[in-house]
Design a binder for these strands. Structure first.
Lengths: 258, 258
DNA sequence: TGCCGTTGTATTATATTATGATACACGATA
DNA sequence: TATCGTGTATCATAATATAATACAACGGCA
């Protein structure tokens, strides 16, 4: 028990662990399942679940007595987005960019070994999870992750590679550390990252880095398009410049404080 | 201290109150300000803030020592949206509907006296807050609120009216309880709700209710368009049918379990 | 129908853990 | 330089969260 531990409230952590469990489990959960998923005992699960329910962060089905995330959780993403100048700047640019080819436009940031999409402007028929803000994807196999890491110190890339479990998401997913390093280096040369069927089958994903005033990568704009409607060549010709322009415009506004 | 109170963890509530403070305060906050905003004393603010920071839910500026919401908060909205069948169904329909006139398409739900936007498909140049999912608006002066309440028992409308502070958001906002009841009744007759400059100046907002299998209003699709590009007549002619069709399609899919 | 395993609920004594008063360090302001 | 406000660290105290337990309600399954 060091000096920091007296300033750490364990109950809060445990309560948040309960909410976190619902991020990984798409179904509603009973108290016993919550206990299992969080590593808490049944009593603890009972207490935290009950608390979260009474506060309006969990819904309880009166029939099945199972819990699911409640609408009020949306407050938290609002709190985040309301404070994120980058998202604010990016929205208008992404809407604009999406119009060019009627494609989807995303903004993502690095969080540990994942990227998290903060802004999503969907256009094409995408699968539902691919339209949801807050969605996590492993950084190592997404063009957004490559683009951001390309503009960061090599140590960051190594940390991400080390922290990723690198399970392939499709049969084409590149999981070899050296191949990943190569992809990052290439993204640095080109100014954009590209992935083909890396996260989703038939997806061509192109991303370009948004940088802070030091030139450090802090986010990426990402544009997914789908084969066979798009070919790789077309995507490189049309989407890559769009991605780089958009990223550059966002970076510029960010530095100017516009 | 009744029987439920032993199952209520106060520390969790207090910690969540800290996060909640950032929903209302768009700036970063110091420890003393957090204490003021949450009603906690300085020590408590210190502990919960520190805990949330260590867990990655709050960012801390090393210079100013002020806190702001961290990226990780997006996990919670993801947890919610991942479980919300309605949002899942609605996304594709809203994208489709937005294409018709290049307008923005939203889905919102009732939460207390507010509506919360859960899905937002922006098209036109909207102000940033109007593009952020999780945004709350008072139900009493939004077409979404009117549309939902039109398909719910009168008691719900009364509860919302009573719980709202009914501060006008524009110089045209209708705040009189009787006028609000009238608007709800009219929305029930027409099948859609319309508001002109009620929440934002020059906004024409049209919404239609999504209903559960009992016909009870559980959400609304909402389409904002702006004057003078759109006139009220045009909006009624074109947007209202679009809203009703979209809402009906979503309701149908919801009941069929599609 | 009646049994049994499982899950959710409620209660309680216990001490772990959160608490909040206090003292200190730091920086800005005047 | 003195003063104020703010962030940080420490610690004795008891309030509060804890986890063991017993009970109730359900849902298969025979």
């Amino acid at each position: 028990m060091n000096k920091q531990d007296t300033l750490f409230v364990g109950s809060l952590e445990k309560g948040l662990r309960v909410l976190d469990a619902f991020r990984r489990h798409p179904e509603s959960l009973g108290i016993t399942e919550i206990a299992r998923a969080t590593g808490l005992d049944k009593s603890a699960a009972q207490r935290f679940t009950n608390t979260l329910h009474r506060l309006g962060y969990l819904e309880k089905d009166p029939q099945t007595r199972r819990y699911s995330p409640a609408l009020r959780l949306m407050d938290f993403s609002y709190a985040y987005l309301r404070h994120d100048r980058l998202a604010e700047i990016a929205v208008a640019r992404l809407i604009e960019a999406g119009k060019a080819f009627g494609s989807t436009a995303n903004l993502c940031r690095l969080e540990g070994a994942d990227i998290i999409y903060t802004v999503r402007i969907p256009h094409e028929n995408a699968t539902y999870p691919a339209t949801v803000p807050g969605r996590r994807m492993p950084a190592f196999c997404t063009s957004g992750g490559m683009a951001i890491l390309a503009q960061r110190p090599a140590a960051d890339a190594e940390a991400v590679i080390a922290a990723s479990d690198r399970r392939p998401l499709t049969e084409h997913t590149i999981t070899e550390p050296d191949a990943i390093r190569e992809r990052i280096a290439r993204a640095r040369e080109l100014g954009y990252a590209i992935g083909v069927s890396q996260s989703w089958p038939n997806e061509i994903s192109i991303a370009a880095p948004v940088v802070d005033d030091q030139g450090l990568g802090i986010a990426a704009v990402q544009f997914p398009v789908y084969m066979p409607r798009w070919t790789i060549e077309e995507a490189i010709d049309k989407i890559a410049p769009l991605a780089m322009d958009t990223a550059r415009a966002i970076s510029g506004s960010l530095h100017r404080g516009t």
